[in-house]
Amino acid sequence: MLKNRMIRVVTFTFTMIFSGLLLMIALIDMFIWQQSFYQCVSKLFALDEGANEGYVIATAAAGFIYSIASDYRIRKKKRSQQS
């Protein structure tokens, strides 16, 4: 089933959801506060010094690593099934 599709499904999904949601937040900000798109996006990526955003960024990164790992696992599983 997954054979002809992208191999890195989980990572792809992760990136898609991640960027999609960020985009969504930026768009909503744009709509409500009447700011430019660039402002909103830069607001998202600006690290507030002193705030503990490091935690969530670390978790999100962990999620990313996890998704790569599970892709790897899926591929291994599939290979062992094929052989």
Partner: peptide, 14 residues
């Protein structure tokens, strides 16, 4: 196992 390790790491940092 990897999962658990990851979780433990997070927990430890907290």
């Amino acid at each position: 196992m990897k999962k658990r390790l990851l979780f433990l790491l997070c927990a430890a940092s907290v």
